[in-house]
Design a protein around this nucleic acid. Structure first.
Lengths: 115, 115
DNA sequence: TCTTGACCTGGAGCGCGCTCCAGATCCGAG
DNA sequence: CTCGGATCTGGAGCGCGCTCCAGGTCAAGA
């Protein structure tokens, strides 16, 4: 199976090498497999996970939230807890969207005023 | 004209007294008028501004962005710069909404899977 | 074999946005 | 007039999410 070096993984994901290591330390990804010499080898699965993490980070979730999410996806909790967690996160995102809409309305008002 | 003490302003706006002072130091609000003894008196106008700032902070704008916004609303720049700035901020907010939608889609997928 | 550059680990440093603290001042209630 | 709670200022401290650094290891190419 084809794997990627840290530099290549950073390149593909748009996440810096340092941040990839940081995410791994924090348990958000991996643990990443190593070569005999101790270098990391990123698989396509790893890249997929990194993509998920990035998606949620961009949405404003914190590292602790993501640790929770990882635990959920690893099925370390009963199904009802998982759904509850996911719904709670979804609600938080909806609130964030609402906050953004409010701010956009203010901007639109000002844009109309100055145009 | 009726004014509010710091504690009352904090109470009305939901922003802590320390944060109100911080915003003032950073030039996001005020300067707030003082009594003879040096205590702050918040006017309704001040509260309105604080509301605006809070709205944008909740939408994820940084302190520096808000300083820019304040400068704009104080008409310290030509109209075309103002509109450009506002449109740029609006685009950033739209991107943020898109990021949130992506994350919500992932959540919905997982919720469906676990339900 | 030697060089060179990518990578390793552990830990320090940094920018942001508050939050807290010390020590002084103000001022309304008693 | 006294007391105590609210407020003042300047500055330190903190949690987060990286980011950078030192000092050492690994491995591909000349």
């Amino acid at each position: 199976m084809t794997t990627l070096t840290p530099a290549a993984a950073a390149d593909r994901t748009g996440v810096s090498i340092d941040t990839l290591r940081y995410y791994e330390r924090e348990g958000l990804i991996g643990p990443i497999r190593r070569t005999a010499g101790g270098r990391r080898e990123y698989t396509e699965d790893d890249l997929f996970w990194i993509g998920l993490v990035t998606c949620f980070r961009e949405a404003g979730l914190g590292i602790a939230d993501l640790r929770g999410f990882v635990a959920i996806l690893r099925a370390e909790h009963p199904p009802e807890d998982r759904v509850a967690f996911l719904l709670e996160r979804r609600t938080a995102l909806e609130k964030q969207v609402a906050a953004l809409r409010r701010a956009m309305n203010v901007l639109d008002e000002k844009i109309a005023y100055y145009s």
